[in-house]
Measured scan of single mutants.
Amino acid sequence: MSYSVTLTGPGPWGFRLQGGKDFNMPLTISRITPGSKAAQSQLSQGDLVVAIDGVNTDTMTHLEAQNKIKSASYNLSLTLQKS
């Protein structure tokens, strides 16, 4: 079951990613910084990142996902799936 979260910026957003197409692993939330915008939302460590700002992550490399997140200036919309 997927869910959506919109973090209001600017960054830093307070989470780290792992995985990506180049690692043959789905993009997942690997760490959440305590007290951060991510920590105050529904994000959980281990959640799968399905889309970033409406763009499906199935074919994204780790770097492409990082760049997509960094390019979000004020709002960052994520679609996630609980692990």
Rank of each mutant, 00 (worst) to 15 (best):
S83W: 08
V55K: 11
T61R: 05
G20K: 02
Q81F: 08
N67G: 10
L78G: 00
S4E: 11
S77N: 12
M25W: 06
I52A: 01
N67T: 10
N75H: 13
D53W: 03
K21M: 12
Q42K: 13
E64F: 05
S2V: 10
V50L: 14
S2M: 15
V49K: 02
R16G: 12
G19K: 03
L27F: 10
T57G: 05
S41K: 09
Q81E: 14
N75I: 10
Q45T: 13
K37L: 12
D58M: 09
W13C: 04
Q66S: 11
Q45N: 08
V50A: 06
T61D: 06
A51F: 05
K37H: 10
N75D: 15
I29C: 05
A38Q: 02
N56F: 10
V55Y: 13
A38T: 03
Q66T: 14
R31F: 13
G14C: 01
H62N: 15
D22T: 04
Q45M: 13
G54A: 05
K37D: 06
S30L: 09
N56D: 14
L48M: 13
L63Y: 12
I69Q: 02
Q45G: 06
L27A: 04
P26G: 05
L76P: 02
H62S: 11
V5T: 04
D22E: 12
G9K: 05
G35D: 08
Q40W: 07
A38F: 01
Y3K: 04
S71T: 15
G46K: 04
D58A: 11
P34I: 06
M1H: 04
T57P: 03
T79E: 13
K70C: 10
Y3S: 05
M60L: 10
F23H: 08
L63R: 14
M25I: 09
Q66V: 15
Q18D: 12
L78W: 00
N24Y: 07
Q81G: 09
Q18W: 06
L7Y: 05
S4M: 11
A72W: 05
K37E: 11
N24R: 10
A51V: 07
P12F: 04
L63N: 11
Y3M: 06
L7K: 01
S4Y: 07
S36M: 05
G11N: 05
G14M: 00
L48Y: 07
M25C: 11
L7R: 00
H62I: 14
Y3H: 07
Q40H: 11
L63E: 13
M60T: 03
S73Y: 12
S2C: 14
Q45K: 14
S30Y: 06
G11I: 04
L80A: 08
L7V: 03
L76E: 00
S83E: 10
D58T: 14
G46L: 03
T33W: 15
K68R: 15
S30A: 12
A38R: 01
K37V: 11
N24D: 09
L7I: 07
R31V: 09
R31T: 14
Q45I: 15
A39Y: 08
H62D: 05
I32F: 01
P34C: 06
S4F: 13
M25H: 10
H62Y: 12
S77H: 12
F23W: 10
Q18C: 09
A38V: 04
R31A: 12
D47A: 05
A51K: 12
G11K: 10
G9A: 05
S73W: 10
E64D: 14
Q40L: 12
N67D: 15
G46V: 00
N75R: 14
Q45V: 14
P34T: 09
S4G: 06
L63W: 10
T57N: 02
I69G: 01
Q40F: 12
A39E: 14
V49T: 02
P10N: 11
F23M: 11
H62F: 12
T28N: 07
D53G: 08
V49G: 00
Q45R: 10
D47C: 04
Q18E: 14
P34V: 07
Q18G: 12
I52D: 02
V50N: 06
G20T: 02
Y74L: 14
G35A: 07
D58F: 08
L43V: 09
K68N: 07
S83P: 14
S77V: 14
G35N: 15
A51Q: 07
H62V: 08
S41G: 07
D58E: 14
V49W: 01
F23S: 10
N24G: 12
G9F: 05
F15H: 02
K70Q: 11
S83Y: 09
P26Q: 04
K68P: 00
R16I: 12
I32G: 00
T28C: 08
T8P: 15
T59A: 13
Y74G: 15
I29D: 00
E64V: 06
T59M: 11
L48A: 11
M60I: 05
Q66F: 14
D22G: 06
L80F: 05
A51H: 04
G20D: 03
Q18I: 07
K82N: 08
P12G: 05
K70P: 03
K70M: 11
Q42A: 12
G20V: 01
Q18R: 11
K82Y: 11
T61H: 05
M60Q: 03
N67R: 09
F15W: 03
A38G: 05
T59P: 09
T33C: 07
Q40I: 08
P26K: 04
P26F: 01
V55I: 12
T6N: 08
M25E: 13
Q66N: 13
G54Y: 06
R16E: 15
L27Q: 02
S71I: 10
S83L: 12
E64A: 08
T79D: 11
I69C: 11
L7P: 00
G9D: 03
L27T: 06
P12M: 04
D53R: 04
S77W: 07
L48I: 14
M1I: 15
L17R: 00
T6F: 08
I32A: 01
I69R: 01
L7C: 02
D53N: 13
G35H: 07
G11E: 09
V49Y: 00
T8A: 15
I52Y: 00
S71L: 10
N67V: 10
H62C: 12
T6M: 10
L27V: 11
A72S: 11
K68W: 06
T59N: 12
Q45F: 08
K21V: 11
T57R: 00
D58P: 03
D53S: 10
P26R: 04
H62Q: 12
Q81S: 13
F23G: 08
L17T: 11
G19I: 00
P26L: 02
L43E: 00
G11F: 05
H62L: 15
L78E: 01
S2N: 15
I52P: 00
M1A: 07
T6W: 06
N24W: 05
A51I: 05
G9V: 05
M60S: 02
W13D: 02
Q81I: 12
T28V: 09
A38K: 01
R16H: 14
Q40M: 13
L78T: 01
L78C: 02
S44P: 03
D22M: 04
S77P: 08
S4N: 11
S41A: 11
D47G: 02
R31H: 15
T79Y: 06
A39G: 10
A39W: 15
R31W: 13
Q42C: 09
G14D: 04
T8E: 15
N56H: 10
V50D: 05
S73A: 14
K70T: 12
L80N: 02
L48V: 13
K68F: 09
A38P: 01
D58L: 09
M1E: 08
I69Y: 03
A65M: 05
F23D: 09
L78P: 00
M60R: 00
R31I: 07
A38W: 02
L43H: 00
L78M: 12
K37W: 11
S2Q: 06
L63A: 15
G19P: 03
G9H: 06
Q42Y: 05
Q66C: 12
G9I: 03
A51N: 06
G14S: 02
A38D: 02
T61V: 03
S83R: 09
R16T: 15
A72L: 10
V50M: 13
T61G: 06
T57F: 01
T79I: 12
R16K: 14
Y3G: 03
L43F: 05
T6Y: 08
V49S: 00
Q40V: 09
I69T: 05
P26Y: 01
G9L: 04
D47L: 04
A72I: 14
L78D: 00
R16W: 12
K68D: 02
Q42F: 07
Q81Y: 07
V55L: 12
L27W: 02
Q40E: 13
I52W: 01
S41D: 04
S71C: 14
S83M: 14
G14W: 00
W13Q: 03
T33A: 09
D53V: 01
V49M: 05
Q66G: 12
S4V: 07
S77G: 08
F23T: 14
G19D: 02
A39P: 02
G11Y: 07
P26C: 03
